[in-house]
Amino acid sequence: MLTAVKNQVRVCALSIKYNIMREMLNQVTFLMNVTFMILNNASILIQWFILFRLREEIGGYTMREIMVLWGLTAASFGLSHILFARVYSLPELIVSGKLDSYLVQPKSVLLGVMTSSTDVSAIGDLLYGVILLMVAGLSVRGFLFSLLFVVTGAVTLTAFALLLGSLAFWFVRVEMLSGQMVMGLVSFATYPDGIFRGISRFLLYFILPVGMVVYHPVHILVRFDGGMLFTVLVYACLLSAAAAAVFYRGLRRYASSSLMEARM
C-alpha cells in the first residue's frame, strides 16, 4: 500500500518536472512569462495605494493585511496552476472525449489528469505571492503558517475547480461557468471581507470557499485561532475528498469520442 502511494507520488512529481522542463525549452519566453507576471501582479498594488490615500483602513484591513491577502491569493493560485493546471481545463477534456489516453495508463486517472499540464506564468504568481508574504512584516512563525495556508489554499482552490469541472460529465456547458466561478472566487479573494455584509458574506464563506482559501488564514495570521486553523485544514481535506468522489462517479458516465491521441 505504502509502496503504491510512493510510486504514485513519484510518477506525479516526474510528470510535473517534465511539464516544467518542456516549458523551459525556450528560456527567453520562460523568463519573460515569469518576470512579467510578477510585474503584472505588482501593478495592482497601485490600486491599493490609491485607496489607502482615501481611508486609513478598508474593511478592517490596513496595507499590511492587504499584502498578506494578496500574497496568499497569488501564491495559492500559482501553486495550484503549477501543479494541477489541467484541472482548470477538465470540462474541455471531458466534453471533447480526450480522457481516453489517461484511462489506459497504469496509474491513478485523476492524478494523471491533474498533473498533466503546467501553467508557466503561475511560477510568477507563486514567486510574487511568497515575496509579498516575506515583505509583509510577518514573524518567522507567521511566515511558516502562511506557507501552510498557501498549500491549503491551493488544495481548496484545486478541489473547487475539480468539483465544478467534473460536472461536465453530466452537463455540457459547464466549461464557461466553472471558469467564471473559479475566477469569481479569485476576484473576491483579493478584496477584504470586511466590505461584504449579510448574505454576500455568507456566500463567501459557505458557497464560494473564499473564506477558507484566504479570509480565515489572514485572520489567523493577524490573531491566532486554533479552532479556525482546524476548520481550514478539515475543509481542505473534505472538499478534496468530495471532489475526487464526484470525479470518479462522473467517470462512469464518460463516453469516448474515439479520438486518436498520444501522451508523451
Partner: peptide, 21 residues
C-alpha cells in the same frame, strides 16, 4: 450570456467597495 456571472461579480465587489469608501 453565461459570461454575465464574471461581470456581475466585478460590479458587486465594486459596489460594496465604494459603499464602504
Amino acid at each position: 450570456a453565461l459570461g454575465f456571472f464574471g461581470y456581475f461579480v466585478f460590479i458587486f465587489i465594486f459596489v460594496k467597495l465604494w459603499d464602504y469608501m
